[in-house]
Amino acid sequence: MTPEPTGRLVPTATGHDLILARTYKASADDVWASVTEPERTARWFGPWRGEAAPGNTIEVQMLFEESEPWFAVRIEACEPPRRLAVVTQDEAGGWSLELLLTETDGTTELRLVQHLTSTEQLGEIGPGWEYYLDLLTTSRTGGPRPAFEDYYPAQQAYFESLA
């Protein structure tokens, strides 16, 4: 079964925001721990090392990518358990990302926002985030890990059509 893409593209003053969301029956504190504690991020994205604080750069490993690369992540803002803003940097360039959490009646919505200056690679970026957010969900529920092949290239045309 191919997962349905959920991402949407919103124009901004400097480009576009790619926004993807997931909802969890959990407190914002618990979801925050899933996206900030290295033992828990290792379950769905990869571990990180360094001293995490606004203005600092940590290193994050992508465990579910070929060669499991490490890359630099500069923490721009950290407002537990509501907002984490980072800029990533690797040999492919840099990305500006935010994780925004909103809790209502014991349910938390997590929104991943990637601030884009170009939509050129949207067909690759979107399916990747859908995959990683579903990995986050399965890390929290214990369900079977999704296969990347179910996301890319299956969702590529959807994301390209958003631009």
Rank of each mutant, 00 (worst) to 15 (best):
I75L: 08
T6K: 12
A13F: 09
L18V: 03
G50Y: 01
W70Q: 02
E76L: 15
I75A: 09
V10P: 08
D150A: 04
V73H: 06
V31I: 07
C78V: 15
L101T: 05
S139M: 04
H115N: 08
A28N: 03
I58Q: 01
T14L: 15
F159Y: 06
D30L: 03
R74G: 07
D105I: 10
D134Q: 12
A147K: 10
L9A: 01
E59P: 01
V113C: 06
Q156F: 11
W95Y: 11
L135A: 00
Q89W: 09
L162P: 02
C78D: 15
L63N: 10
V31Y: 05
E68A: 08
A92K: 13
E68R: 07
W32E: 01
P3A: 12
Q114K: 11
M1Q: 10
L97N: 09
N56E: 07
T104R: 15
D30F: 05
T104D: 09
Q89C: 07
L9H: 02
D30A: 04
D17E: 10
S118C: 13
S139N: 03
D17W: 10
D90H: 04
G46K: 00
R43W: 02
R43A: 01
P153W: 13
Q121T: 13
D134A: 07
E109S: 11
W70M: 00
I75T: 06
G94E: 14
F148K: 04
P146F: 13
A52E: 09
A163S: 11
R49P: 02
S67G: 13
Y24P: 00
V86E: 01
E109L: 11
D29S: 11
G55E: 09
E98N: 07
R145W: 09
Q121W: 13
T137S: 12
F45Y: 06
T2C: 08
